[in-house]
Amino acid sequence: MRASIGKNKAVTAGSILTLFVVWSLAAKWVGKEIILPNPVVTFTQLYRLLTSGGFWTHLSATLSRGLVGFALSFLAGLLLGLLSGLRPGFETFFRLWLTVIRSTPSMALILLALIWFESNAVTLFVTFLVVFPLITQNVTEGVRQVDPRLKEMARLYRVRFPTALYRMYLPAILPYLATAAAAGLGLTWKVMIAAEVLAYPRWGIGARMDTARTYLQTPEVFAWTIVVIVVSLFFDRILAALIRKRLLYWE
């Protein structure tokens, strides 16, 4: 076991190293920083960003927007998912709406939102419309998978709905909820950045990336990209840890 963990670590290190080597070679081959900056330039730029004045304001603006957007999507998705799972009529009613929303390109959503709202609302609106159907669908599926024999048992013993919801349905759909949260949060950052690039709020990573692109500051685009990747990985890890602790504790 320990040997295999050690081996895995070595493979991971090799993988990272290879990535940097390929990146450096590619940058050397291209030969233009404006097209593809090499890792050293990129990380120097990243360091400059981190120590510059506005960095934390931009970062926290994007983070808070993302988390608020995700939280709204999660709550709405949970609610609609529960309703749809418990009452097939709801599911039939909303299926078409959700399918339409899911089939709409996020760029189309962003463009429409730009026409309708101010820039902060645009980012929230778009994130919500992209993430919320995903959560809804997972929760609906989870509720439907609850063992009918347990539901029958709860019905026979006349367990009231709040008790059944809290003690039976929610724990039963926890694995579905966890999958939905992980996928939804990952998606949140991607969509949020895209929305920020186009909506151009005063504070926000996406807006900074677009500014850098406009001024052909490619290393800065790269540096911000790395920031977003780190943010995404960070929340992914936190979520994974939470899930490990809370989920399947009864196994």
């Binding site: 709860a154 006349r158 009231r160």
Partner: peptide
């Protein structure tokens, strides 16, 4: 009339302890 039913299989909620499983059907009554 309130009915108890001992099903052929136990039909317990895996995520609740033994005592919580009993409380699940009792607490509303």
């Amino acid at each position: 009339k309130p009915i108890s039913y001992l099903f052929q299989e136990p039909r317990l909620l895996d995520w609740l302890t033994v005592a919580e499983n009993l409380a699940f059907v009792l607490k509303d009554h």
